[in-house]
Design a protein around this nucleic acid. Structure first.
Lengths: 111, 111
DNA sequence: GACTTAGTTTGAAGTTCGTCAATATAGAAA
DNA sequence: TTTCTATATTGACGAACTTCAAACTAAGTC
């Protein structure tokens, strides 16, 4: 299911079971403190991308754990990564964040 | 930790461990399809509120499970409920949704 | 080739989560 | 006060999640 199909405003009409399934998958990916910090680190990093080696420092968890969380974020469509030589660089997919943000926006009450 | 303290934009600066902890607590609450549908049903219901009896119908899960999920949403500060006679009515706290929505917004890139 | 560094995958341990049946509580009505 | 309806709580169980150590892969260097 695409972003557009699942990320309808939450507050306008009741979500279908399918919409809720897709949307909750993405919120669940944001529902872990390590993943949220990783996402934030990547998004706020100069150039909009960060190498895994820059993400590993300053975290209390092991390398494999970082790797696991990056995979979750990747498979949820929130980030993407590509290898350049020895290093792998990750960046946020801004459209995904925007879609989630809009799903939460209150529908304007008619004046 | 208050909404204002935790719901800073994700993409501007790296979240602190504390900020990420609070923010992820709220996203985790949205990370279940049943909870997301409940939230959506309440938010989109006429009058902005819904009685539990209106939420129970049309769900494949048991009453206690609905009750459990409403409690999670309540304890996360996303909804509130009050009893009126026999029934308990829940409504969404719009400020909470707005804060989460803003946390996901991309920071504007300087032109 | 052998060695090193960056990152991922695998497998297992411990924990948290979602669910339900059974039980409990709160209020209305008889 | 007994009974009925609406909702919540408790306790249990299986599934899913987070984490790490160990093993693996991919690229660069000697």
């Amino acid at each position: 299911m695409t972003l557009a199909q699942c990320c309808v405003p939450l507050t306008a009409d009741p979500l279908t079971a399918e919409e809720a399934g897709e949307l909750s998958r993405r919120f669940k990916a944001l529902g872990d403190p390590v993943r949220l910090r990783l996402l934030s680190l990547i998004a706020s990093h100069e150039g909009g991308e960060a190498c895994v080696c820059e993400l590993t420092v300053g975290f209390e968890v092991s390398g494999p754990t970082i790797s696991h969380h990056l995979k979750v974020l990747r498979e949820t469509g929130l980030i993407e990564g590509d290898r350049r030589g020895t290093w792998i660089y990750y960046r946020v997919l801004p459209e995904a964040l925007r879609a989630l943000s809009e799903a939460l926006l209150p529908t304007r009450v008619p004046a």
